[in-house]
Structures are given as structure tokens and as C-alpha cells.
Amino acid sequence: MNMNLFFREMRRNAMGLLLWMAVITLLISVTMSMYRTFIDNQSKVLGMMNLIPKGALQFKGVSNFNDLFSVMGFYAVNNVIYMMVLGSIYAIVLSSNILLKEEYGKTADFLLSWPLSRSDIFFGKLAVFTLNVFLLNLVTVVAGFISIEIVKTGPFSIKPFLVLSLYTFLLNFLFGAIGLFISTLIRKPKAITTFSIGLVLIMYFIFTLSKITESASDLGYLSPFKYVNTEAMKPGYGLEPWRVLFFAGLSALLLVFSFRIYRRKDIYL
């Protein structure tokens, strides 16, 4: 890996990373700040909740309405949207552009004429992408943890929180690997960002559909969201090896294919 490339890319993406960190942290903080009000109006909320079909909340990992009134349950429900969806959008947009922007920005002719191998470029950019996704997760997890510590009204177990955070990171990283893989296949890169965002939203829609519609429940297996266990309030909630293997294995496979393709890819301006 070339450190010159790595540091330059980190600097280049720093502003975007900070912005995403700020937005997601703000969303988590604002949402968690409503927890106390939520608890204070427990009976009213429960009354309203009973009007909502149970399936509509199941996709967020809520199998029991009462789970929502624990601080972890409240956090988990909102975490699905903020970190899983927004974090995945960040990861896929970053990864799908990180190699491709050299082509559509017409800078590839310079970069590839300097003493760098394709491996140097690929692994340098992969390291930048990995570190950025990790930092985004780290900061938002810390923000989530601090928010929980501030608003909690009873005991809070850290284990489900960390497990859910790890699943979130694995999901974000998988979407990043998908983005990188797609970018190595694409010749006309202009629509890559729209396509990447669309892909995450479609996958989330498929997952949602599979949760609320029984007839579409098998369809959910097409979506990476399905492989995250969001039911953090269930007893015995922990890391399941098959889920971890799914995310790590599929990500590794996509990265290996991406590298093999990029190593032999014709670069045009």
C-alpha cells in the first residue's frame, strides 16, 4: 500500500466524512433526546401503537411494543434507519466512486503514469474506504452510547449495543464492497452515485416488504439487511457466526473479484 496515496485520499475524503458523522450524530442525538418524553407518555404511546399492525414494526426489530420503552429498544429501532441505511449509503457512495472518480475526473492518466502498481492504487483506496467506514461507525456508536448514558432511566446492557453496532459495521462494509465491485465493471461512470444510492434503498425496501408481508418473506433473503439480527432486546442476543460469516465472506469475495478485475481493467478518459 502506498502511504502517499493513502494520506492524500484520507484528506480528500475528510470533509465528506465529517459531514456524514455530524449529520448521523445529530440525528441519533436528537432522536435519543426524545426518549424521556416517550417514556413519560408511555400509556398514550402504547395506545397509539396498538393501532399499528405489528408487522409494521417488526422490520425494525421490534417484536414486542414494550421493548420500545427500554433505552436499548428505542435506540435499536432508530439505529436501523440512521446507521444501517444512511451508513450503507455513505459506504456505497464512497466505495463506488473511490476508484472511478480518477476516470471521470480525468486524473487517472496522471495517477497511473506515476510509479504505482494497480495493487498499490486498489489497496490504498480500499484502506481509505475501510478506515472511513470504520470511523463513521465508531463516532456514531460513541454518540449513540453517550446519548443512551444520558437519557437512560434504568440499567443498560452494553453487549447488545456492541453486537448491533458490529452488525451495522459489517452491513455498511458489505455495501461498500458491492459498490467497489460495481465500479470495476462500469465503463460509463456518470450515474454510479445515483445507482448506488438506489441500490441501498431498493434493498431496504425489499427487506421491509419481506418483514411486513408474509408472502414476500423469502424475498428478503435477496437483501443484505435481512442478515442483520436487529432484535437486540431478545434474550440471548449475540453475534451469530453464520451471520458474521455471511457478511465477511461475501465482502471478501466481492473484494477479491474487484481486485482481479481492476488489475486488468482498461482505463479510458
Binding site: 486524473t107 492518466d109 496522471f110 503514469s113 478518459l269
Partner: peptide, 9 residues
């Protein structure tokens, strides 16, 4: 190398 049509960053 002096490229014919490339942009510096």
C-alpha cells in the same frame, strides 16, 4: 508522460 487530455486534481 505528458497526457493529451487529462486533468490534474
Amino acid at each position: 508522460y505528458i497526457p493529451s487530455d487529462a486533468n490534474a486534481y
